[in-house]
Design a protein around this nucleic acid. Structure first.
Lengths: 216, 216
DNA sequence: TTGTAAACGGAGGATGCCTCCGTATATGGC
DNA sequence: GCCATATACGGAGGCATCCTCCGTTTACAA
């Protein structure tokens, strides 16, 4: 049978392609809302396909996460390429980092799921880690070459910090916080004194305010 | 809080107390090893009690996580208190942050589980967030008062950054990375130019080296 | 010692994961 | 346009885990 034959690939059936797409879309929607608690049966239902179909396309829960995850990573990688031509290297780096926050914001519930993936499948992790590291690498290299940023911090370091800062987002104001943290971090990266630190983000506003907790 | 009845509390039974303790210990052990995949039945078995007993003490999976989580938080809070009397405020802050990394390191598998808790139960989250925020707050306040650290970053901000940085730990060398990131972050916090940045951590060693990836 | 509230253990219903297989259909050859 | 068949579809059902419920056991107080 098909064992050693060169390739008699019959071209994938149209309905298969359509269904795969549907499941992927449904998964993204359901996971974004329900996090890692969403049942796969719910995804299948939402996609309008049988549970069997879902499992043929994505044999395991992880496989499904992976497919979604991979897309997200691609988009971020592309953004970095665009930013390569920006005039200010440090600003470009900062922009990309901030874009990540925005990015995560729209995915809310999905992050928990993605976290599980990142910890699990090491092959995918390697891929995405590599892709994102390179994305940061190019931005970082330019800034270092311009003498604006210290050279003893690697792209991986920055990636980890970024991911870390985007992780903790359950309170209402988390985005503001994450952005502020990134500024502090970037300031820490600079070679020059971080005098006008906060100014980069919000020139005129006092940032001392806190959400609603009790700082006492 | 208080109900209104005069309370005829009969004093908890000895075996109940003992079993509760056993379950808690078993849970910590099992979760630390197996992460969030460990079944509650496994915990019960490991603790040598029936599944029903486990569920009476901790009605939901979250409740069990909570109990463990709460202890960990307590310990960190206590550490902060001890550090309050340290001579160098910035160093004390840095020490506490670094201690967290160490702390997480020994809990490996449990972090995934704890992450789920943090995202779920808002009551516990509020408590621990508060406890840790205060811990950082005292350390931070001293450093600010000494004029060594900028005053526009709140304790909550620092906590978030810290948690974030400790999160991503699946690669072998994550601890080293986390510690380096914390240094950069603390440098970003400083009022004065971060000239001797890396020096605080490792006076004489060049840190430029990167693990093994391809920075190209 | 004895009565009783409190705690124990595990059977079992409910739900979700994943496999398997009979049915339906898109595709390519005629 | 029609047929043959590889390909894909759907969902029933086996298995594991979650959680509840209730009959039995046990520690405590009188």
């Amino acid at each position: 049978m098909a064992g050693s034959s060169p390739e008699i690939v019959r071209k994938p059936r149209a309905d298969a392609v359509r269904n795969r797409e549907r499941v992927l879309a449904a998964a993204k929607a359901v996971f974004s809302a329900g996090g890692s608690e969403a049942s796969l049966e719910a995804v299948a239902r939402h996609a309008g396909v049988g549970i069997g179909t879902l499992y043929r396309h994505f044999p395991t829960r992880e496989a499904l996460y992976e497919a979604v995850y991979r897309r997200e990573v691609e988009q971020l990688g592309d953004l970095a390429e665009q930013l390569q031509n920006a005039p200010e290297p440090v600003a470009a780096l900062r922009r990309w980092l901030r874009a990540n926050v925005q990015f995560v914001a729209t995915k809310k519930g999905m992050v928990a799921a993605l976290a599980l993936v990142a910890a699990g499948s090491s092959e995918l992790h390697a891929y995405s880690f590599d892709r994102l590291t390179k994305a940061i690498g190019t931005l970082l290299a330019r800034a270092v070459a311009a003498g604006a940023i210290r050279s003893d911090i690697s792209a991986e370091d920055v990636l980890r910090a970024l991911i870390g800062m985007c992780y903790m987002h359950d309170q209402p104001g988390w985005q503001t916080t994450a952005l502020r943290l990134l500024d502090v971090f970037v300031d820490g990266l600079r070679v020059q004194p971080p005098a006008k630190a906060a100014a980069t983000a919000k020139p005129a506003k006092k940032v001392t305010s806190k959400p609603s907790r009790s700082p006492s």
